[in-house]
Amino acid sequence: MNFEKIRDIIAEQTGKDAEEITMETSVKDDLEADSLDLFQIINDIEDEFDIKIEDVENIKTVGDVVKLVDELSQK
């Protein structure tokens, strides 16, 4: 559930097709997102789920983001 929402936010910011985005998709290599894009995506996800994500620096894949959101939105 969270994955679909996150995927759509990422697709919108990076201009990729949502279907191309999987848990394994690399933020930097596949999405070609620079740090401006990444922080925009995180900002939009934080607003959507009403959470605050730490350790943005350690995010490598879409799966990393989903895992963080799953953990934080359970609390």
């Binding site: 740090s35 401006l36 922080f39 925009q40 995180i42 900002n43 939009d44 605050k52 943005v56």
Partner: peptide, 12 residues
Amino acid sequence: APSVAIAKRMEK
């Protein structure tokens, strides 16, 4: 901060 999203994060 070089963008609004990053500036908002810094404020938080």
